[in-house]
Amino acid sequence: MLTKRIIPCLDVTGGRVVKGVQFLELRDAGDPVEIAEMYDQQGADELTFLDITASSDGRDTMVDVVRKTAERVFMPLTVGGGIRTVDDIRRMLNAGADKVSINTAAVFNPDFVREAAERFGSQCTVVAIDARQVPGEQRWEVYTHGGRKPTGIDAVEWAGRMESFGAGEILLTSMDRDGTKDGYDIPLTRAIVDAVSVPVIASGGVGTLEHLYDGFTAAGASACLAASIFHFRQHTVREAKEYLRAKGVNVRL
């Protein structure tokens, strides 16, 4: 039986892992390769690196981080942030990444997702969706540029469209919850899980282990992404999994 995945997310800029609240107040959380090794030892199921630098120099640094990590840890690595061309994808895969996550570029050029899936396979084509609830409605809108720019696109429809373009997985972040520690946006996540047949990764808002449990059960996510509860040693990945297993969630220990 397929186990539910716990994915620590490392936001990287200038070759360092950082963590902020809704993309502000960045705090240094350490060296990415060392942190990746720590999560590997704790039994993380995958790792996601998110390049939060927009510049092209930043991207070279990111390739280097991926290359060094892939020499030391033997688990699936996803890289997101600034992936805009087929060449960006090839560089990341050649460096040792298994999947890339495409966000803003998918909104501006949906055919890029199709091209990526045809060229490299759906298994490595993750589409990241940043969504915010439309005030007062059970509806969510897709945002780009790190959650700053609204697009007018309905998040549930968009997820289905991205699946039809070849996305092999959806990384769904609630921009309302990101950094708040109030828990995942369960209605949003459930709506997307029900709308697509590819795996959905829940992201944004984890503050307690119970939030992970809700992400898997109430929202039905295949994987839960979390950053700060792991980076600042509030919990280890192993503790999270032991908690989930005790509550009946099928996880790998």
């Binding site: 039986m1 995945r5 092999g168 697509v196 590819v198 295949s222 994987a223 790998r252």
Partner: peptide, 16 residues
Amino acid sequence: SASGEKLPVPHMGWNQ
């Protein structure tokens, strides 16, 4: 499906 949840494809993750 299994246990009331649909099984996504691709089959992605750790299995026995």
